[in-house]
Design a protein around this nucleic acid. Structure first.
Length: 838
RNA sequence: GCGAGAGUGGCGAAAUUGGUAAACGCACUGGAUUUAGGAUCCAGCACCGAUAGGUUUGGGGGUUCGACUCCCCCCUUUCGCACCA
């Protein structure tokens, strides 16, 4: 009876090597088997993995291993989101090349991931910076361009002065760059756009397919971002129309308040402004206002503390129904980019308009009478936003305001001055980046032919690796003749390449599809493989991508489907989404500046990967943040030691091979063993649900801990009879099998020590026998008026009457009902008896 | 302001359909073992109380025989959006 010491380092190395040699986690298309595609958001190769990565990949790995043991054909791949700005910055800082920096980081991080024993199919590994990958993206770009889903336009763009590039709206956080936090400026530029707005309605509508499968808040955030509003477009003719300036159109969600319009407010950027102020003696004052407002940066202009200011243009419009003269104002709070850049002013029913009217002494017209109260325009202190009945609205008087929305819109339509419409907040996605380390946009500018898309057969347009990164951060591509100077694909003459590269979010919008057939060379995807594996069944990642990556991927999926590149019935890329919580330290984010970064590699060196994995999963439910605790990881190590020791102590009593769960007979064993057997089946039932269905790994682990505790108690009491040994051995098999997705190395090692030749990774998930979970006796709670007064042990089959009698004669119950009349007795079989007395 | 969460012991948390609140673990306390430390084992551990017993899931109300769980009001807190007409 030699006892082996627990040496995680050697065990883990051994099993990682063996899984690798045997290709245990390689998978292939197999139409005969149900598939399960589990994916974690792939990492940016920043240098080292951190605890957030570890947690993310542990969650995915447990899912993958569980589903595999449950008989699913599991696809669980890993790759690298390898283009992007940090590579360029690091290259400048360290005098290296972004490619060199990126590939060496990938090598380093791959080693780190391997040390954690994740069950990836490494044969499908991809890196988005490789031409074999981005060539397909260039092809998609060309196809999308052909379809009009990619286009070029000149417009003010978000410009990050520190990164020297434009940013998508989604990449501007509180007016600052999502990467470097610099204040974002506006700059007029010609850029490439993805027509994501063409899918606004579908992106919104299909959120309902994700209800209950994606976190509510992610769905809510996307819904808000898309921002659909229903309302009406209304045309106000100008009082003094001129060439090219006949009317002003507004968008409103409140056409029912049309009769309350007493002014209109235009954005200072509105195209008709210059025409409206000609002839106004105060034109200079207006121009001054425009300049002042336009010079404010985006952050200040959009802050809620900004005082609402405006200026009268000197021009008037005519009310579309009443024909009244409506003064036209400019306002600093009107957004040029939303709706038509002009709003009708209804101070009675809109708080902003109310503030504006009060400030500039504009009239307020009462148009809706609420159910209670009687707002008076001369004395009211805030806008009336409640529902009500229309007054002073001509033919619409007496109508409730909800019905009036349609009625007034219909009236406008019949006059040719309006119609029902919708507005979205969503803007098209700017995908041009003035950076080097990205996928080249496959377009050529020819002096003769103009803009010419590259021919598909000429792809990939290679990003030149001999370009020198510039110290100032600007892209070297425009000054790299070998790249920028090229032949026109149409006429063959000298032409110039587009030197902007694509936003890195392009690469991550389709990588999950490439994994289904990562090595095909002549097509982006193998049709059969893609059809078999897509969509991703379970996606896991941080909530920081709730809008960016997850919205872009949803859009890209729909566009690719419509191009015929994805299966035509594929609506959504990710069926289920789990957003994992952050790993914190001392209540906050780990950061280098605070010096509180916990290094995964150090933890693996100290405790082994199994302990790190166990702690990450046991510390909290996966979607919740948790604080890293040095004491906590000690506890996880202790538990694995406890399992190890139990095994070593009892090794000689264990049967080989161990009987699978459910195979043991109850009658051949002692009472202790029978109780252990029941505990085993209860554990399988709970842990199966927690680990494989609910993904509550913390409670799954605690259930297994309870079983281990029960085994420790049982081992001293049990006999050495065959029946008892069978029960104990089965419980041991169950512990090792069910724990193996969480701590695979140590479980494999012990499994092998018992003489098993087939790997645990290929074992079948245990099944429980419902009958075996039943006990002969039950503990029944006794309550008097809902308060617990005691418990009694009764035979499992006891009927209601007998339970009631037992409860009524219980000593504690008698004590608490003394001198009272029993009015009612509630008997819940197998649970409790509640005696209502008074 | 709008939207989505969260609030339970000293701490991380559990309670899946309304049915014994605090499982599992951390920390802590006492004991055993040990030259010592560590490790391990045993016992205790929501709060008040010597006990009997009483109180307890952010606060207040309600439904119910029974509420962490359902309904209403309020408070605190995290995250996201925020002049979107």
């Amino acid at each position: 009876m030699t006892q082996k010491a627990y040496d995680p380092q050697s065990i883990e190395k051994k099993w990682q090597q063996r899984w690798d040699d045997r290709h245990d986690f390689a998978c292939r298309t197999d139409a005969a088997r149900p598939k399960y595609y589990v994916l974690e958001m792939f990492p940016y190769p920043s240098g080292n993995i951190h605890m957030g990565h570890v947690r993310n990949y542990c969650i995915g790995d447990v899912m993958a291993r569980c589903k595999r043991m449950q008989g699913f054909n599991v696809l669980h791949p890993m790759g690298w989101d390898a283009f992007g700005l940090p590579a360029e910055n690091a290259a400048i800082k360290n005098h290296t090349h972004p490619a060199k920096w990126t590939y060496s980081n990938i090598d380093n991080m791959r080693c780190q991931l391997r040390r954690l024993g994740y069950s990836y199919d490494w044969a499908r590994e991809l890196a988005t910076c490789r031409p074999e990958y981005y060539r397909w993206e260039q092809m998609f770009f060309l196809r999308l361009f052909e379809k009009g889903l990619v286009y070029r336009k000149n417009a003010p763009q978000n410009w990050c002065p520190s990164c020297h590039t434009v940013l998508a709206n989604e990449q501007v956080i509180d007016g600052c760059c999502w990467r470097c936090d610099s204040k974002v400026e506006q700059k007029e530029l010609t850029q490439w756009f993805m027509r994501i707005t063409a899918y606004a309605d579908e992106l919104l509508r299909d959120l309902s397919l994700l209800e209950g499968k994606w976190p509510d808040r992610v769905i809510a955030m996307q819904r808000n971002w898309i921002g659909k509003s229903h309302g009406a477009a209304v045309t106000f003719p100008l009082a003094e129309p001129s060439e090219g300036a006949e009317s002003i159109e507004v968008f409103t969600t409140r056409p029912d308040t049309l009769f309350g319009v007493t002014f209109m407010t235009l954005a200072p950027e509105h195209p008709l402004v210059e025409k409206l102020i000609t002839g106004n003696p105060d034109a200079d004052r207006v121009r001054e206002f425009i300049t002042k407002t336009r010079n404010m940066d985006r952050l200040d202009r959009q802050s809620d503390t900004l005082e609402k200011e405006g200026v009268f243009t000197g021009s008037y419009a005519l009310h579309p129904i009443t024909g009244e003269r409506i003064p036209l104002w400019l306002g600093n709070f009107v957004l040029a980019g939303y709706g038509t850049g002009a709003v009708m002013g209804v101070p009675y029913a809109d708080q902003r308009d109310f503030d504006f009217a009060r400030k500039y002494g504009l009239p307020i017209k009462k148009i809706i009478q609420p159910a209670d109260g009687n707002p008076d325009p001369t004395s009211m202190t805030e806008a009336m936003t409640a529902q009500g009945t229309l007054v002073a609205c001509g033919e619409f008087d007496g109508m409730d305001n909800e019905s009036a929305k349609k009625a007034i819109t219909d009236k406008l339509q019949s006059m040719g001055l309006g119609h029902a419409t919708t507005q979205f907040r969503l803007r098209d996605w700017n995908i041009s980046r003035q950076r080097y380390w990205g996928a080249p946009i496959p377009v050529v500018y020819c002096p003769k032919c103009g803009l010419v898309p590259e021919r598909e057969e000429n792809l990939p347009v290679l990003l030149p690796l001999d370009a020198k990164v510039r110290e100032d951060g600007r892209s070297p591509l425009p000054e790299t003749p070998s790249f920028a100077e090229c032949a026109c694909p149409r006429c063959g003459g000298a032409a110039r390449r587009e030197t902007d590269t694509m936003d890195t979010f392009m690469e991550s919008s389709w990588y999950f599809a490439r994994y289904t057939s990562a090595r095909t060379e002549n097509t982006p995807f193998d049709e059969d493989a893609m059809r078999y594996w897509l969509p991703v069944d379970q996606y896991i990642g941080g909530v920081e991508h709730a809008i960016l990556h997850l919205l872009y991927s949803r859009f890209f999926t729909k566009a690719m489907r419509d191009l015929g590149l994805y299966p035509k019935d594929l609506a959504e890329p990710f069926t289920n989404l789990l957003t994992q919580g952050m790993v914190l330290k001392d209540g906050g984010k780990m950061s280098k500046s605070k010096g509180n970064v916990v290094s995964p590699v150090e933890m693996i060196d100290k405790y082994g990967a199994d302990t790190v994995r166990l702690f990450c999963l046991f510390a909290a439910p996966p979607e919740r943040d948790f604080d890293w605790s040095d004491a906590g990881i000690e506890g996880s190590f202790r538990f694995l030691m406890r399992v190890w020791r139990l095994f070593q102590d009892e090794k000689d009593r264990l049967l080989m091979p161990m009987p699978p769960c459910g195979s043991t007979a109850a009658d051949a064993a002692s009472k202790t063993a029978r109780d252990l057997r029941r505990k085993e089946h209860l554990t399988v039932k709970k842990a199966t649900d927690d680990m494989c269905e609910r993904f509550q790994f913390n409670t799954a682990v605690s259930a297994i801990m309870e079983l281990v505790n029960a085994m420790y108690l049982a081992r001293d009491v049990m006999t050495d009879d065959e029946g008892d040994r069978r029960v104990f051995s089965s419980a041991m098999a169950t512990v090792l099998t069910m724990l193996s997705p969480v701590t695979p190395h140590v479980c494999e090692e012990l499994w092998e020590d018992l003489g098993n030749v087939t790997p645990l990774a290929a074992a079948v998930w245990p099944a429980w026998d419902e009958a075996a979970t039943q006990s002969d006796t039950l503990t029944i709670a006794l309550q008097v008026n809902g308060k617990l007064r005691g418990t009694i042990e009764v035979p499992a089959g006891m009927d209601k009457d007998a339970l009631e009698t037992a409860a009524r004669t219980d000593e504690a119950v008698l004590r608490h009902t003394k001198g009272m009349t029993i009015r009612r007795v509630i008997v819940i079989p197998k649970k409790l008896v509640n005696i209502v007395a008074g």
